[in-house]
Design a protein around this nucleic acid. Structure first.
Length: 768
DNA sequence: TACTGGCCACCAAAC
DNA sequence: GTGGCCAGTA
């Protein structure tokens, strides 16, 4: 026990020992809140509470894993294993699977991600003849998602609908719900909403009896701890309220100043009103910051002062003063990017820091591009959180769709995704007929396929193809019981011919996809080796619920790039925050409502307080947005932090504009190619655009040139009629040259590969 | 049915 | 500058 309490400051120790009954721990940034949580749980275990009686909800799975590890060091690791610890979504999907039949599902329900939801919504809109041009499907999706997070069910939504858009959503919402039920699928919001349905025995045909399930979990979970409570939404709040309703051993930990998810329904009132909900609640405050320097904290504090809605607290630190927070003015986003890179170089040299000690944070994912370019140019290793996460890549989603179909044959989204991939001659017209038939008979798509012979408008030849497909899925669904999961997947992927097809396509693009699928298959193998009681179902579940931050690999020595949102809960020696410009940060739509502006400010606050030793803030005077150069004004937040007196402004840090020598410019742009390829997580050097194009078989290009001199030669040297050689396509003759500079293209007739349209920038042609 | 070029909207953050 | 959708064509 002494081991558990040792090293805690008085406030922390208080909280660890006395958090019985409803308790709120107001924990400022860097005040050791994870420490309190882990020690609290260890303390409970040590006093005889059984691990499965403790439910601890975290914001990411990674946080849960790290907490478990820390607890394992204080108590018997075998005991720590049995703790219920994870995100709301993962914990409650686990519970929902146990009780699936009680709410009209089977335990192997699929979890739809937002792409799946969107596509389901589009189909519903199609069926209802609601125009996608008039009503943006994405907006519809987010309306429905918000409704679910607010516990507004379709009937109620319809009553509340006033304007035209809402009334259309009111038509779509119930059908969308039905479509998901029919597919034995839940979206992210359902994982919370259906939990409430389960507890409230709402619309559940097989309910064992009112309140039974809830009572079971109320008694089971003797202690409930919720981290990042400021970012819980109404649905999460409702779940907690029910679960803790009986024993009231509820500890919530949070910092209102770090609430940054209002846009997805998080309700800051949950933390502000905690004492109203539980008048007997104890409140502990953790106000000593152990992470940052005095200057960093002063800047953050000065900033957050501008927000009105706050729980009063006084964050302080005994750390040294450190450097001022440096504010750097740049010419444009490229200048900003190179200023960041130069700073990192400088700091690594001066302070003997590793690349992993640096984070670059930005408001929007789109900003990463220019920064990535600069990092690559410099040959500086980086990892990027988010962007195109591995499991959201097209080829991976394709393979996953097959797996999902094996587990849940009702899964319509997966069915539609793969029924004609690889191409089997089952086109959209056919599937329209099938969908209509399914709607008419109130059955799922897969069941409709079984009756394919009865569906009018489908040709016999197509029907045969469909039967073949159904047979394939049926075969592996049966084999599922007999083979090891990874063997099964390999065999199935093999039989579909996806890999062969990608091999035959033989572009950089298709080969990269092929490699990704191979990588996926080894990930599957690893998973089944490492995980006890692993099933395909559990694998899919894990894959569906990984968050982007979960995928950060801390062992790699590389600069981390991510959005400010993703940075929550992390810390770095040096933090750079880019793009502090009006309209970008705070972002444009936020400018209007004061409430939104306050959330933007909290987001900046979160960013600054990630920094341990140094914090740099960047803004550019102009920036490329929507493909257009726009003048930008420094963010109002710049002035706000300058009022702290703990900042330092540096102008003209970067190079001066722009009497551009196009040649020098180009040299700069490609110089990274001389330096070899750095470690890049997630993204290879293929841009999304090219992926898109190549995915549709449009493009063409394959290789980046391997040195600048070759660029020069190919761009300046290629003429009509010339004989050239290409690394992949071999020898050919130039038929046409069009465009200039960056955009120059050539049509080349290759002896072995026929006519190709090549971007000279990438094609790396050599004259013969 | 598959593929392509062109047009248009878009870009705020994510489980 | 990117990604999605659609209509025209092979």
């Amino acid at each position: 026990m002494s081991k558990i309490l040792a090293g805690l400051n008085p406030a922390q120790m208080e909280a660890v020992r006395n958090a019985n009954g409803p308790t709120m721990i107001v924990a400022g940034a860097g005040s050791g809140k994870t420490r309190v949580l882990t020690h609290r749980i260890a303390y409970l275990l040590e006093t005889g509470v059984r691990p499965w009686e403790i439910l601890s909800l975290t914001f990411t799975n990674k946080a849960a894993k790290e907490m478990k590890e820390r607890i394992s060091k204080m108590v018997d690791p075998e005991v720590a294993k049995d703790l219920w610890m994870g995100t709301f979504h993962s914990v409650f999907s686990r519970i929902l699977r146990r009780h699936a039949t009680e709410i009209g599902y089977t335990s192997s329900f699929t979890i739809y991600d937002s792409d799946d939801s969107l596509s389901a919504i589009k189909q519903v809109m199609n069926a209802l003849s609601i125009s996608k041009d008039q009503y943006n499907p994405n907006a519809v999706r987010s309306r429905i998602s918000n409704a679910k997070n607010q516990l507004v069910y379709p009937d109620e939504y319809a009553k509340l609908a006033r304007d035209l858009f809402s009334s259309q959503v009111a038509r779509i919402y119930p059908d969308y719900v039905r479509a998901l039920t029919m597919s034995n699928a839940m979206d992210f919001d359902d994982l919370l909403l259906k939990t409430i349905d389960l507890f409230d025995h709402r619309s559940n045909p097989n309910n064992p009896g009112p309140g039974e399930v809830l009572a079971y979990y109320q008694n089971k979970f003797k202690f409930i701890l919720v981290d990042e409570y400021q970012d819980t939404n109404r649905a999460q709040y409702a779940i907690i309220k029910r679960l803790a309703g009986k024993l009231k051993n509820l500890t919530v930990v949070g910092d209102d100043a770090q609430s940054i998810y209002a846009f997805r329904g998080a309700d800051i009132a949950n933390i502000l009103d905690f004492q109203k909900d539980y008048p007997e609640a104890k409140v502990f405050r953790l106000e000593q910051n152990y992470r940052s320097t005095k200057n960093i904290l002063a800047v953050a504090g000065e900033l957050i002062k501008n927000n009105k809605d706050q729980i009063e607290k006084n964050l302080f630190t005994e750390n040294m003063a450190g450097d001022p927070v440096r504010i750097i003015e740049c010419v444009d986003e490229r200048d900003e990017a190179s200023a960041i890179v130069r700073m990192i170089e400088d700091e690594t040299r001066k302070e003997k820091l590793d690349l992993r000690d640096f984070a670059i944070l930005y408001r929007t994912n789109a900003q990463s591009r220019a920064i990535e370019d600069a990092l690559r140019r410099q040959g500086m290793a980086y990892t990027i959180v988010g962007g195109t996460a591995f499991y959201r890549r097209k080829e991976i989603k394709d393979v996953l769709a097959y797996v999902r179909l094996l587990v849940n044959s009702s899964d319509t989204e997966s069915l539609l995704r793969v029924i004609n991939y690889p191409a089997r001659g089952i086109g959209s017209t056919t599937m329209e007929h099938v969908a209509a038939y399914a709607r008419e008979h109130q059955i799922g798509m897969m069941s409709a396929l079984e009756g394919i012979d009865f569906i009018t408008g489908v040709q016999a030849r197509t029907a045969a193809k469909i039967k073949e497909f159904a047979k394939l899925i049926g075969k592996y669904a049966k084999l599922k019981e007999m083979m090891s999961p990874s063997e099964l997947l390999r065999a199935m992927i093999d039989e579909t011919g996806i890999l062969q097809e990608l091999k035959l396509e033989n572009t950089m693009e298709s080969l990269a996809r092929r490699e990704n699928i191979q990588e996926f298959l080894s990930a599957v193998t690893d998973y089944f080796h490492e995980t006890t009681d692993a099933t395909l179902e559990s694998f899919l579940e894990e894959v569906s619920l990984v968050s982007e931050v979960d995928q950060v690999d801390g062992t790699k020595n590389a600069v981390t790039l991510m959005t400010l949102h993703a940075a929550k809960g992390l810390e770095f020696q040096v933090v750079c925050i880019a793009g502090l410009e009006d309209g970008l940060f705070p972002s444009q739509p936020a400018g209007q409502e004061p409430r939104d502006l306050e959330e933007e400010r909290r987001l900046f606050y979160v960013g600054i307080t990630r920094a341990m030793k140094k914090c740099y803030v960047f803004y550019a005077l102009q920036r490329l947005r929507f493909g257009e150069t726009v003048r930008m004004r420094p963010s109002r937040f710049i002035e706000e932090i300058e009022a702290s007196g703990s900042t330092e402004r540096i102008t003209s840090f970067g190079t001066k504009p722009k009497a551009r020598d196009p040649f020098a410019d180009r040299a700069n742009e490609y110089s990274h190619l001389l330096a070899g390829t750095p470690v890049v997580n997630g993204r290879t050097f293929t841009s999304k655009r090219r992926e898109h194009a190549a995915g549709r078989g449009r493009s063409i290009d394959t290789e980046f040139p391997s040195s600048y001199s070759q660029i020069e030669e190919s761009e300046m040297g290629v003429r009509k009629g010339m004989r050239v050689v290409h690394e992949t396509f071999g020898e050919g003759r130039v038929l046409e040259v069009a465009g200039r500079g960056e955009k120059a293209k050539a049509t080349v007739e290759f002896a072995k590969f026929g006519r190709k349209n090549l971007m000279l920038k990438f094609a790396n042609l050599r004259a013969l």
